[in-house]
Nucleic acid binder design. Structure first.
Lengths: 214, 214
DNA sequence: GATGATGTAAGGAAATCTACTACATAAAAA
DNA sequence: TTTTTATGTAGTAGATTTCCTTACATCATC
């Protein structure tokens, strides 16, 4: 069996590196790379990989949203999240979205290979530091009421786009919706998160990893 | 001739990927990896690589500082910077520190191979987007001023207040000036820093420590 | 089958932004 | 020492955006 892998990372240098790493392994090969969430979803549909290795932070549609989408639409595809941070929040949301693995960029390259093997066998796989957090979370977590989870998927998406400097009109275009609709989402976001303006919204998005500096 | 390469990146996953990529190439091989600037300097001294591929942002000692050190102590070693962003500031500082190449993580994996070949031949190498900035800088750049220092004191003050969610009107009150004056400052800030909107401004302020999250 | 959350959208008044222009002063360059 | 440039200050006016409110259909859920 030769596993088909799709890589999604906005830094092509990183994807190409991972691809080299994976292709050097027998039993698996990279069949495609995506550079953002939308692209990842499209390529997943088109290429039907066995496993997607997906970066958490990407422009347009972030890795967690993309995971959610892929998981909903193509539930047989296993998804491994790749992240710079071991923030409990990310991890929680990633798992909620349907990720089977969560590995850190700071860990060894072989981890990704191990992770692919594990999730293919239907098992979860986490980097060590992540595993601890997962356990801890499952212990004393009073049903995740982190602020982000108050938002609907659409609202999260709009939040991210707003934080990434897209204007209301531009977002409306990107999502093929009326600007007025986007305004409604923004109003709901402000309301739910008790924010008052764009700077606060940007800070919120950064704090909660919906977007990153640079 | 078999080029000896040292990789420095705090994300081992990324280093390992790059290593796989480079090792798949004939004529060059990775002889070591470092995970921070101090480590990079030590390994450079010990292993005497021909080329160091160094991430800009690393903990402890960042890539630019490490480049400076290595360049001073071991001037025959060629250094290629690897970065997520094409910020003119970083680029400038990297070159000043002695880097011979500057490539973006978003560019293709093969770029790193090309870069290694070029710098080994004593030539500079830049990703396309970077090259433009380098040219532009050499044209109209009053040597090594970081972006923040382009601003006047008033402008910095207004930048900070804007990033902290204060409205134009509120800032005018705080500073006992006309709102219109504040707008002028903002326009000048946008102009000088090549920003377009508030989210970008907030990011800039955060990056340059003019304000902090929370 | 009411209730609430969500996705979608509009109207209209108020506020803000954009793009110029203006001018005085201080600093720097020619 | 002129001349130029940067800075602090402020205005006009049209274009845009925001704010607040209302509306409605759908879907889940109680």
């Amino acid at each position: 069996m030769n596993l088909k892998i799709l890589i999604a990372d906005d830094h092509q240098m990183v994807s190409d590196g991972l691809a080299a790493l994976i292709d050097a392994q027998s039993g698996m090969s990279v069949i495609g790379c995506a550079t953002n969430g939308v692209d990842a979803l499209a390529k997943a549909k088109q290429l039907r990989p066995d496993v997607v290795v997906m970066d958490v932070s990407m422009p347009e549609m972030n890795g967690i949203e993309a995971t959610q989408e892929i998981h909903n639409r193509l539930p047989t595809i296993r998804i491994i999240m790749l992240s710079m941070h071991s923030s409990p929040e990310y991890i929680h949301r990633a798992l909620q979205a349907g990720a089977m693995g969560y590995i850190l960029k700071r860990s060894a390259g072989k981890e990704v290979v191990k992770a692919i093997e594990q999730v293919t066998a239907g098992k979860h796989f986490f980097s060590e530091a992540v595993a601890e957090i997962v356990v801890e979370q499952s212990l004393h977590r009073p049903a995740g009421v982190d602020a982000v989870s108050l938002l609907s998927a659409r609202e999260r998406q709009v939040l991210q786009l707003l934080a990434e400097s897209h204007s209301i009109v531009r977002i409306a275009e990107l999502l093929s919706l009326s600007p007025k609709t986007i305004e409604t989402y923004r109003a709901r976001i402000y309301e739910k998160l008790a924010l008052r303006d764009l700077p606060q919204l940007v800070r919120f998005a950064l704090k909660h990893g919906l977007t990153s500096l640079d």
